[in-house]
Every structure is written in C-alpha cells, then in structure tokens.
Amino acid sequence: MAVSVRVIPCLDVDAGRVVKGVNFQGLRDAGDPVELAARYDAEGCDELTFLDVSASSGGRDTMIDVVRRTAEQVFVPLTVGGGVRSTDDVDRLLRAGADKVGVNTAAIARPELVAQIADRFGSQVLVLSVDARRITAEGRAAGVTTPSGYEVTTHGGRRGTGIDAVEWAERAAALGAGEILLNSMDADGTKDGFDLEMLRTVRERVHVPLIASGGAGKPEDFVAAAQAGADAVLAASVFHFGTLTVGQVKDALRAAGLEVR
C-alpha cells in the first residue's frame, strides 16, 4: 500500500517549442509541448515536468501559454521550472495551471527565496532542483572541497559554486522545499545510469521526496535509482527519442517488486 514510484518525463522547452529531438509516431507536431504532454499522459506518466530553457522574457511569456494549454487537457501533476526568480514568477505559473514550480539558480543566490515561496504557497508547490557533480581530482587540486565530495553547479554544470550539494539539499528542505530534484551533471547525457552513490547519500540526509535525474539509459537504471531511495525518477531523452516508453520503465519497476501506478 505504499506510494508508487513516480515516472516523470521532462520536456525542455525553448520559446514554446520542445528542444530535444522527438521520435514519436503519429504526432501532428513533434515540437509542440502540449501535444507531447498529452501523449505522455496517455502513456501513463505519473507527472510531467517542463523545463523552460528560454533565454528571453518573451520566451517565458510563451511558456505561460504552454502551461495554460497543457493544464486544459492533462490531468496529472505538472511541474514547471527554469528561470523562476521570485514569488511573483511562481504565482504566474501556478495561476496558469502548474501544480509545482522548480527553483534552481535563484535559490542558490538567495536561499530565502525558498522560504518565501513555501510561506506564500506551501511547501508542496516547491521543487528544489540541484545540479550536482562530484568534485574531480582537478577540482581538489584547485582547492575545491566539500564535506560530501559533491558540489552544486550552475549554468548547466559549467560553473561550480563550491557549495556542498548534500548540505544544500538538506538546508533547502529545512527552509521549506517540498521535494528535491537531484540532477547528476556527471551522469547527465551518458545513459550509463543514475548516480546511485549520490542518491543514497542525499536520501540518508533529506526527508522530503527525492527525484532522481540524469543518466537514464535502460529500464534497469530506473529500478536501481528507486532501490537507492529515489521516490521518483525523471528522464528526458530516452523518452523523447523513443528509446524507452513510460510503460517499459514501469514494467521493469514492477518486475523488481516496486509499486507502480
């Protein structure tokens, strides 16, 4: 009777269009996030995440419209992240129909933003996204150390912050984040599986739901992430390119004795 492991496709959206390639049969417009979202809903996804990668404010306005149109026809929870810098940004997304909002870089610069959002809208709307990487030998040589050996990054992993990723996740949860999206910048794009060691480390220290992200390639990768303590598993390209379906991932989870919807 436990809560099931959530399988969450993530769509990168730039100015209202899905960025990464999409290889679905039968879509009228493979670049339309609304149509893709409906497709994933029909496949049985447990939630959906839109990551707005628009560089311009015009692109973000477009995103509001995408969220509104998606919420009209998708009846599973929708999280929207990317470029969220204030409680007003959160308000606009929630009013458009988002259920949760992902916050990343702005919270690193201003941790109080986490508390402000939680106080105004409740912890349940706030997914704190952590882009983390293992500190390399070169990094250590350059003097970068953190207690856990993992560091928070920004700019898609290109810039280190020197902040301990595990401590940051713990602190954000204490400030009011309702959920942690832990994205391994080392594993991201490799298709070699999630960073299980990092997941286990964060799981031990953080008592809000934990979403594993980065590195998914095979159905077994999702199983391993759930067994390492992830409450939810998120992936982008394996779903978009048609390498895996949501159903295949759920079959693997079920076969491993994990609960799925």
């Binding site: 809560v3 099931s4 309702g178 409450d231």
Partner: peptide, 11 residues
C-alpha cells in the same frame, strides 16, 4: 513518516 510530504499515487 520517514518521507514527508506524502507525495504521489497511493491506493
């Protein structure tokens, strides 16, 4: 519970 909020799909 060990993990709160209770977030997700339950029977």
């Amino acid at each position: 519970a060990p993990v709160v909020p209770h977030m997700g799909w339950s029977q």
